[in-house]
Design a protein around this nucleic acid. Structure first.
Lengths: 215, 215
DNA sequence: GGGCTCAGTAAACAGTTGTGTGCCGAGCCC
DNA sequence: GGGCTCGGCACACAACTGTTTACTGAGCCC
């Protein structure tokens, strides 16, 4: 369905890609709201006016980058969580999957980290919507575990959000480690694993009622 | 010790404050790296050159804003966690404390959210360092609970980080709610409370050994 | 193969930016 | 009360910004 047709469409798609890549690259050392349109076109090697053939705005390009950056994460999550081994291994596997993803696509993670609460509202909400979908998806995956017997949809949703929050934080920490800003990668992984174990423990002893469990 | 002395120093401090406030206000709809020096001075009503009497850079002003924004949080955390009532109430109290803080100082939270992973490295690391201190402090507070008997310093530290991560995420969610971007405030509070209960449960059943608990 | 589509161009527009210089003049200190 | 300190000013600088206009020319379709 999405097969590019004519040779001209193909060329257009090519410069579009170049624009997206250039934008992503420029985000390495600034935020989206401070990137200039001319700066991007200069990096690509086209005239400023040509930019408008592809995007209305820099913000518009940003929104396109969201799908780009978070789309490929779905499979990673699914693969990282569907692993059918025992709990300990599953945690190790998930954390390693996140680390590997950050290693392979640091610019994507950087973009999401930078613009999740950044200065461009449209991008912010686009990222928020994607993370929402992730939470839903994770909830659905976790619902299949036997530990989830008797959990309400609302509780499962809450659990999914907790997992996603943790994955996001961990990914950001891995990124910081990669650029030498926070603790090193193995320390991040070590902490992330233990935090997942903590959550997993809470999950195992969860009861839906309002009252706190007996001391 | 920090009492301002001469009338001239006082006036200088006053415009410095005005610059900080203007910067904070401008961050409402853009990121630090896109704020212009002239934009700030224009908002304050002084000439561009006067800016250099107070800060070397806009980035420099950003670093100053970090202490400004996160300094007052220490007491909130302490007060929110030291509460000596039973577990359920303690959680309610903490979440409400966060909500109240965001309601009172939304610009501070917005600044931290926007620049935690923003385009200015110096500000990023300054915020990171502050959050580190928070994690340490929370760990120290939680160590005093009886539930923490036998916990290693490393495990306590991990727990503190988990709490801080959660508080930060919650604060950001409250902020989003306040500007109508995410779920409404009461939904955020509801989720946050249950997530805290989850963590609290995991904490109660935590064992330090590597092997996973028996099924 | 002739006409049309349309990605990309060059040039000009009016604003804006950060930084440097020299100079006030109110307030401090002795 | 006289000299110095120093926050703030006006002005100038070259460089840059987003957007519009009229255009070219390679590739598509019939």
């Amino acid at each position: 369905m999405s097969t590019t047709q004519s040779q001209r469409d193909l060329q257009k798609a090519r410069t579009r890609r170049a624009l997206l890549d250039a934008g992503l690259a420029l985000l390495e050392e600034q935020s989206l709201s401070s990137i200039g349109l001319r700066e991007i076109t200069r990096a690509v090697g086209i005239s400023p006016a040509a930019f408008y053939r592809h995007f209305r705005d820099v913000a518009d390009l940003g929104v396109a980058l969201v799908e780009e950056s978070l789309g490929s994460l779905h499979e990673v999550i699914r693969e990282g969580l569907t692993e059918r081994s025992e709990d300990g291994e599953r945690i190790d596997h998930l954390v390693e999957a996140i680390a590997a993803y950050v290693r392979r696509h640091p610019e994507h993670i950087r973009f999401v980290a930078r613009e999740r609460h950044g200065g461009v509202a449209a991008v912010r909400t686009a990222i928020g919507a994607q993370l929402d979908r992730f939470a839903e998806e994770v909830a659905r995956l976790l619902a299949r575990d036997e530990v989830s017997r008797g959990w309400s949809a609302e509780d499962l949703r809450m659990l999914g959000e907790t997992y996603v929050d943790h994955m996001v934080m961990t990914a950001f920490a891995f990124l910081a480690a990669a650029q030498g800003e926070g603790p090193p990668e193995d320390a991040v992984a070590h902490t992330a694993r233990r935090q997942l174990r903590l959550i997993s423990l809470g999950r195992r002893h969860w009861t839906s009622q309002q009252a706190p469990p007996a001391p």
